[in-house]
Write a protein that binds this DNA or RNA. Structure first.
Lengths: 337, 337
DNA sequence: TGTGGTAACGTGAACGGTCAAGTTGTTTTA
DNA sequence: TAAAACAACTTGACCGTTCACGTTACCACA
């Protein structure tokens, strides 16, 4: 009995304001062709009846939803996503868009795209750090929907926004080299992850370039636990190293604990460098020298780039590469002779 | 020239399958009234033409979007949200819903609700840890839209899902009391936050109940930095304490650093207990005794509860209270005489 | 044999907007 | 002064579904 409040439509407004529904539409969309007095009268009626245009009806005719969708693909337990969703939603909102978030598995990616299309989603940001798929395949799946990957995907000529992992890794390794380290171990992210692959190979290559034998390495999965266990394994291997490159600050926290348990002191005995520069990096024991990735910037650029593509569908796709910075703290130091 | 692919509609299918569009609709929605041969024929045509029902059109007629919206209200920098969005999206998806995420300020909450209604959002999960608003006001704003707060809001009779902060805090303080501590300081979350308020007052009350004078306290804002600074302030105050209760594991990490800088050892000199039991708690130095909040469970319950309300709008609203658990690690120990 | 019931399908009208093409009436222009 | 231009507003069609009836055809039963 309380729900007798029929939703008020554009035609109700028209009737009350003594104009046609089309005139109301013009007023709503701020289009010309309406005299000032009429416009004001209509606006007043809208106020009085607390009218809000039905967005769904609008979608149906305009074929646009002003909604973006974030695909999180093959990410089990998404620590790394952290603030990204909220941040993206914020950036999108500033630009007049909403953000839908959805999980997908790469095996069902096609359905995800179809579903997005059926909802008249305007564009998609994809976070798929382990997705290996040719541009051709992906382009076919996405079915004409604007798509930006928020990843570093050096092989792809589709739109993506990512941090140059080669550069970032080089930054880390060369920092250690400059400090005189010659025996450098690594705990890179899982090679299954695109950035894991590049971190690992770059680490190796830079060392080889410098005539050094790569130290032991053992991949982790982003969890602190994996960093902890990997560090123990490296030490168990018996191979000598004076510096350790770790995939993320979180993994480094785990590694630090392991080193500590083994009675090794950082940076006295072993220098540790990691990636991300999250809040944690400033509060570890000791604070971490780390390669900073400005994820919020990456999110923002990805969203804005997507919107550009939406507004100009014939735009030539390109890749936006961000460069990391080295942040020096206390976990690294020159090797002592 | 590539876009000549007109979207295929229900009528196209009907024409190709030699039935009426209504029959196709019946097939799509798995409703009775269609013979098996016809049903199969229609399904085959849908396959061939790669038909996907237009969800927007469906929304318009059914007045349901199968979409939930997450309001994040007055949260600046949402560390605590972390995996929640992805997790909620997952739970929602399992139940056939999508999740839209949006930020809002409490001052514009009304518009946010209106916007959700205009999109035909089916229900709202609100995360608004600092929102103080009477049930009456909130109920008026939400305009009949099903709403569940993912917060502990002891004053409210609307639907909410939250951890009992009084119980949780009692758990922490009583643990310290059992260990013989008599001088207990606190770094609660900002009193502006609902749970901050309850943590602070409960900490004080439990101590008073036990005939003890509350130790010094200094609120923090969830950041590690605030924990670090608060700990320093407590020590600067010169007031004696042997135990410290800290609002989150992250703040505890900051506090641990501060204590360390002052030459204090945990737990030898000071016992530390915190809240959340995030991954970090296992890898701090020393690992933290902490009160576990199972946030993922909270998220899941909130979503499911919301869907229940959607399915039965006349359901009597209630509150779902979750209880925390104490997780013992190495940051607390009996006071030495 | 006629009445009734039912399974299988078809039709018209929403849903609440936008778009494109009218229809006025007034003003400008040749 | 007739024609053209324009501002202001209206009308009909359409977006792609679902919903509520209508219409068949067929079979059963009294």
């Amino acid at each position: 009995m309380v729900d007798k409040k029929k939703t008020v439509t554009i035609r109700d407004i028209a009737r009350m304001a003594n104009v046609s529904y089309q005139t109301v539409s013009l007023v709503i969309n701020d289009k010309p062709g309406v005299s000032d007095p009429t416009r004001q009268r209509v606006q007043q009626v809208m106020q009085e009846l607390d009218y809000h245009p039905n967005k769904v009806a609008r979608m149906l005719t305009t074929n646009r939803s002003h909604t973006l969708e974030l695909f999180v693909v093959d990410v089990q337990y998404g620590g790394r996503l952290a603030d990204s969703t909220k941040n993206m939603a914020h950036v999108a909102k500033e630009a007049g868009y909403s953000l839908l978030i959805s999980e997908a598995e790469s095996s069902h990616l096609g359905e995800a795209f179809d579903s997005a299309a059926a909802r008249m989603i305007d564009g998609i940001v994809m976070y798929a750090p382990r997705l290996k798929m040719s541009d051709r395949e992906l382009d076919k799946l996405c079915n004409g929907l604007p798509l930006v990957r928020r990843d570093y995907v050096p092989g792809s000529k589709l739109a993506w926004v990512g941090f140059d992992q080669v550069y970032a890794t080089r930054l880390a390794v060369e920092h250690l080299l400059e400090l005189g380290h010659q025996h450098i171990a690594a705990i890179p992210p899982d090679a299954d992850l695109i950035n894991g692959y590049w971190r690992y190979t770059t680490w190796k290559n830079v060392l080889l370039e410098n005539g050094l034998e790569p130290g032991p390495s053992c991949a982790g999965d982003y969890s602190m636990k994996s960093g902890y266990e990997a560090a123990h394994k490296l030490l168990d291997s018996g191979q000598y190293f004076t510096a350790l490159m770790v995939g993320t600050d979180g993994m480094a926290q785990g590694a630090l604990r392991a080193l500590h348990e083994r009675g090794l002191r950082v940076p006295r005995d072993i220098s540790v460098i990691s990636f991300d520069n999250t809040e944690l990096a400033s509060y570890t024991e000791p604070p971490l020298t780390t390669v900073e990735f400005r994820f919020l910037k990456q999110d923002e650029i990805a969203i804005k780039y997507l919107i550009e593509i939406i507004n100009d569908p014939n735009m030539e796709l390109h890749q936006r590469v961000l460069m990391a910075d080295l942040v020096l703290r206390e976990s690294t130091r020159p090797i002592h002779k």
